[in-house]
């Protein structure tokens, strides 16, 4: 039986890799891995980014799950930002938008979407209650590594 979480994010499972440009202008290669755990109750998300020589720049880990209202909770760790619990906020269909606080009076916005086997992620670190939306964003477009998953109908 497929869980509501896997029904929604089946197309995201697997390994993704592509260029990233951070909000401060640095560039590198980002890799995301989405793995279903506990029979689809949650999805473990592991991330690592590399410089042009292949040395790791950042590392991350997280768990996507659904709250009792069916909205996504994403508790995350990023080596350069620390720990946070992000909650889903309303956005267009197909888009996963998350928001949550970070230590030091900061907050994090993340928008993620999979389309045509491309995972696009945009994020922004804000500071203070009235953080400006005009701050630069970190942006990455990753392609799936390995073969595509079975079509959704077959997976269910």
């Amino acid at each position: 039986m497929t869980t509501p979480l896997i029904k929604r994010f089946h197309d995201w499972l697997g390994v993704w890799r592509g260029p990233i440009e951070w909000s401060d202008g640095r560039r590198g290669i980002m890799e995301f891995t989405f793995e279903s755990i506990f029979n689809g109750q949650a999805i473990e998300v592991r991330t690592v980014s590399f410089d042009s020589e292949g040395a790791p720049l950042t590392r991350g880990w997280g768990y996507l799950s659904l709250d009792r209202n069916g909205r996504v909770i994403d508790n995350i760790y990023f080596s350069d930002a620390g720990f946070s619990v992000l909650h889903e906020v309303a956005d267009d269909p197909g888009m996963l938008s998350l928001h949550g606080p970070l230590p030091g009076n900061r907050n994090l916005d993340v928008a993620m979407m999979v389309e045509d086997d491309v995972l696009a992620i945009s994020s922004r670190l804000g500071e203070g209650y009235a953080a400006s939306d005009a701050r630069p964003r970190t942006f990455t477009r990753m392609r799936r590594i390995g073969r595509s998953l079975a079509p959704r109908e077959e997976a269910e």
Partner: peptide, 13 residues
């Protein structure tokens, strides 16, 4: 800290 997912408690830090 330990970042975790529990089948009983859900998201944990």
């Amino acid at each position: 800290r330990a970042l975790a997912y529990s089948t009983i408690h859900g998201a944990l830090i």
